[in-house]
Design a protein around this nucleic acid. Structure first.
Length: 220
DNA sequence: GCGACAG
DNA sequence: ATCTTGTCGC
């Protein structure tokens, strides 16, 4: 995809915080300008000190699988809420650098700007690769919301402590909730509409992300 | 100080 | 995320 990223990953929490503070201002929240023809879901699995990351590339808006890529690496950073990008980021970037096709939008397992520093993993990776990214998590990390109505694909806002909208809560076809927010180079409206176009009745999260989740597993 | 806390 | 059976709820 012609992406080459330089980023220091062998760091401690203090350095990670510095990097977040330095990169967070590079986020651009705007509607997607280009027509979306490809979308890629990315998720990781862990086993002991190892991490495996999977990318599932689909066409859009049909959401048919075009390609599946995987890469294995070592975890060098612990899981700390708010710092997920430093645990998964290196492996994710290595994998994205292997993708030859041009990807118009990425969906990550985690948050975008619905984050204490407005800089979750989807925003972090999005700033590094300069592509539209969406964060899609199964639980809330930061912000406030009220439950969406009980019908499929209903949604409400996630707001920060000042009342600013930072994401959406979306009800899937099974009645469960997912928490989505812009990562980079996308706005709230496009985040919601694109995510909804990736939903399938049989799966609780956007289909490309579901497949990435399944295919990233070490066992099974 | 207390509680909350993506994966 | 992972350890794990039955069980509560729509």
């Amino acid at each position: 995809m012609k992406v080459k990223v330089s980023h220091k990953w062998d760091i401690d929490k203090n350095q990670a915080e510095e990097i977040q503070n330095k990169l967070k201002d590079k986020i651009i929240i705007n509607p997607i300008s280009k027509e979306i023809k490809t979308i890629c879901g990315i998720d990781s699995d862990y086993k002991e000190e190892k991490i495996q990351t999977c990318a599932v590339i689909c066409n859009f808006p049909d959401i048919e699988v075009i390609e599946i890529l995987k890469i294995e690496g070592k975890t060098k950073f612990p899981y700390i809420p708010g710092f997920l990008a430093f645990r998964e980021g290196e492996n994710i970037i290595k994998l994205i650098e292997k993708i030859e096709k041009d990807i118009d939008c990425f969906i990550f397992d985690g948050h975008g700007i619905a984050h204490p520093k407005k800089f979750g993993i989807a925003s972090h990776i999005g700033v590094l690769i300069e592509k539209p990214t969406i964060g899609c998590a199964k639980s809330l990390l930061f912000g406030n919301y009220s439950k969406p109505p009980s019908f499929p694909l209903s949604s409400t806002f996630i707001k920060d402590n000042e009342g600013e909208i930072i994401g959406h809560v979306l009800r899937n076809y099974k009645g469960g909730l997912i928490f989505i927010s812009p990562g980079n180079l996308i706005d709230l409206k496009d985040t919601l509409s694109i995510t909804i176009k990736c939903m399938r009745e049989e799966y609780p999260i956007p289909y490309p992300l579901y497949l990435a989740h399944k295919n990233s597993k070490f066992s099974n």
